[in-house]
């Protein structure tokens, strides 16, 4: 199989490798084979190899994917693969991107939980069947792999845009009944760099390996912001 792999930083080029095919081979297996058997200088990231950590996300034939959970059989076209670093993030080297901007945007979207309790208080009871808890459940399983961010065209066009993952995180907090920073967070996620920049292309939802829907969360944020404005809270 012919495999083209991005080499270098922002300026670089694809390098071609011949990699033997195996049954049930994943794209991460391919990258690991190249590094171990063909070129030990190849830089890439991985940790768990089982779809829990999200660190091995890369562009595979132009689509952002977890390479550990992507079988070559499913994505190879004419026995060819093209593997490059995640889109929309600065390339450090080869297949490794700088994730700082991605996580800084979580902070800018006020992605930290702010409850009212202290350590002396008992746990707040949130019934699992309550509507708000169900909304939180729908978006809470994000592991921050950056696949949605790489899939998003709005991030490409508007580099300040907070992106699907940060906005999805903000949405899970806005819908959390324990949250005490609602208005501050809604202010942080509205405007040209926030939820209102989303064009609902649904690429994030299409590509999310956890099958979450940041698009739905962002639409929820738009509604929540509009409601707060109409009620005079924002």
């Amino acid at each position: 199989m012919k495999v083209s792999v991005w080499r270098g930083g922002a300026q670089g080029e694809f390098q071609s490798f011949d990699v033997p095919r195996h049954p049930s081979q994943t794209v991460l297996d391919v990258v690991t084979y190249i590094q171990r058997a063909l070129d030990p200088t190849l830089a890439y990231r991985f940790a768990c190899r089982v779809g829990m950590c999200g660190s091995c996300a890369m562009m595979v034939n132009g689509v952002p994917r977890w390479t550990c959970r992507t079988h070559v059989d499913k994505v190879a076209r004419d026995e060819k693969l093209e593997i490059s670093p995640l889109r929309n993030l600065p390339v450090i080297r080869d297949l490794v991107v700088d994730m700082r901007e991605f996580f800084d945007k979580w902070a800018r979207a006020k992605g930290e939980f702010r409850g009212r309790g202290t350590r002396q208080d008992d746990f707040e009871r949130v019934p699992p069947e309550s509507p708000s808890r169900k909304l939180v459940d729908a978006g809470i399983e994000c592991i921050g792999c950056g696949v949605c961010y790489a899939a998003c065209d709005v991030v490409k066009w508007n580099p300040d845009y907070l992106g699907p993952a940060a906005l999805n995180r903000a949405w899970t907090l806005v819908t959390d009944v324990r949250d005490r920073a609602r208005l501050e967070r809604l202010r942080a996620v509205s405007g040209d760099a926030g939820c209102h920049a989303c064009h609902s292309h649904v690429s994030c939802t299409e590509r999310c390996p956890k099958h979450l829907s940041p698009t739905a969360g962002i639409a929820g944020l738009k509604r929540a912001v509009a409601k707060a404005v109409l009620q005079g809270d924002l």
Binding site: S190, H196, A226, V229
Partner: peptide, 8 residues
């Protein structure tokens, strides 16, 4: 502005 856009 978003509200105006949607309403219009």
């Amino acid at each position: 502005m978003w509200i105006v856009q949607r309403a219009s």
